[in-house]
Design a protein around this nucleic acid. Structure first.
Lengths: 266, 266
DNA sequence: GTCGTGTTTG
DNA sequence: CAAACACGAC
């Protein structure tokens, strides 16, 4: 038995923040790092820096400018089928198999400002992405060890946002989104590991907007970044290993998201 | 008798390079620093950093985004009339009086690519700017101590460029420009202090293009930044104090220009 | 507020 | 090559 620790981090440009990733990896030694919003093409990914930090095995799904996801690993990666959640073909899904575990790294569309599919096609795209997730995980082999991580751009619970009532009509916390997330979890028999480790009554955030410079003061965050496992694999999760590295939000030139980590006995 | 040292530096964004100015000022302690291309509005100038480096007296002629000149001084500044060289009203001239000496800090228009007024209005603007300089300095009181500094965007002499023949048709070294500069000097009875300190036969550059990363290799520079004094004041210039700080071109995130310094007994 | 893109300027 | 801007995105 060894431990496999998996981190997820929306890095908001990996070229600009490879140094922050290096610092995080050297301090916490995750085995697998799943990044979202790398904002570069495959060939522009700073591979050398990742090799230096002990993560030489890379699976990059990049594109020019926007989105882009990547998985960096201490251990060798095997290829697996990559689910097609994005109807626009954007680089929002990376999937691999490591140490016998399938890992899905997702970047769900943010969804724009107006939570109204009639006037906001981005919100419609987000809901479509979530629907496709539901269909995929419902149909998936339940016995295969699965970890799903990423920036899901939905804060599902009341205490996954700084103010439940204030955000009920704000994209990321509307009922249509949180219910869609609930259906995915139910359909795939998935487990929200953050809420295994930390009671649902306790505030838990992984993102604080850039737009309030005093984010520490009022702590107006949201939990947008998640780590799930399917029922078959969830017992391998070690609850004490779950950490949201809030301190990274105060590093120099930070991402607006912080790394979230969970480890498994494999 | 005390010494007054005056520096001129096209800083190419003072907000981005205030740290470089600080390093230069701490190492060489100029009394007056004349900057060009500050690229900010008056209120955006990093005044606090200049106060920290011992230059609390500021005369800023800024504007949004482009151009902009400023004079920072250890000694108090007096106001003087500011000549109007720019027919487009851009922030290209700052003038002050310090220790009884009038200082003109100029940023002459670069002039675009084609040295042809018929097809390139920027070149026409540059020549107009130089013509207005000629008229102003011809009419000026010859007895008043005057120092003219700045990025004049003209390399007048054969050894003010890496290749005289190669650049005869390149904006900054065309005969129409170098002759215009000669007429200004003659009309105003001005003295090119750089060439007082260093023989005209010796190569002297203050600018190396960003576009050749190997600028040290072939040393393809130009002398675009100048310090002049009028005939009445030129005897106060101390030739040994004249320095072009070429090493600053190799600092981190450098300007493409380096500081030029001259000191006077006042 | 902080990214990316493209354009303009030097 | 490296600033600025304007735009769109999050």
């Amino acid at each position: 038995m060894t431990r496999l620790s998996v981190a997820t981090w929306n890095i908001n440009s990996v070229r600009l923040r490879a140094g922050l990733v290096k610092r995080f990896v050297e301090e916490h030694r995750p085995d697998v790092v799943c990044l979202q919003e790398i904002k570069c093409r495959d060939g522009e990914f700073p591979s050398a820096i990742f090799a230096e930090m002990g993560l030489p095995h890379l699976h990059i799904r990049g594109q020019k400018g926007w989105h882009g996801v990547a998985i960096a690993s201490r251990l060798p990666l095997e290829s697996v089928e990559e689910p097609n959640f994005c109807r626009h073909g954007e680089a929002r899904v990376a999937a691999v198999r490591v140490a016998g575990v399938t890992i899905h790294n997702l970047y769900v569309p943010a969804g724009g400002d107006e939570p109204d599919t009639a006037i906001n096609p981005k919100f419609d795209h987000k809901l479509s992405f979530l629907d496709r997730m539901e269909a995929h995980y419902r149909a998936r082999n339940a016995a295969d060890p699965l970890v799903v991580v990423g920036d899901l751009n939905v804060a599902p619970g009341e205490h996954d946002v700084w103010g439940h009532k204030q955000l009920l009509n704000v994209v990321s916390h509307t009922p249509v989104e949180t219910e869609a997330l609930g259906r995915i979890i139910a359909a795939g028999d998935l487990v929200d590991l953050g809420r295994v480790a930390v009671p649902a009554s306790e505030k838990l955030f992984s993102w604080w907007s850039y737009r309030s410079p005093d984010w520490t003061k009022n702590d107006r965050g949201r939990r947008l970044d998640h780590i799930w496992a399917n029922r078959a694999f969830a017992p391998c999760f070690v609850p004490e290993t779950f950490v949201i590295h809030k301190s990274a939000r105060a590093w120099e030139k930070p991402s607006d998201h912080v790394p979230v980590v969970a480890a498994f006995e494999v």
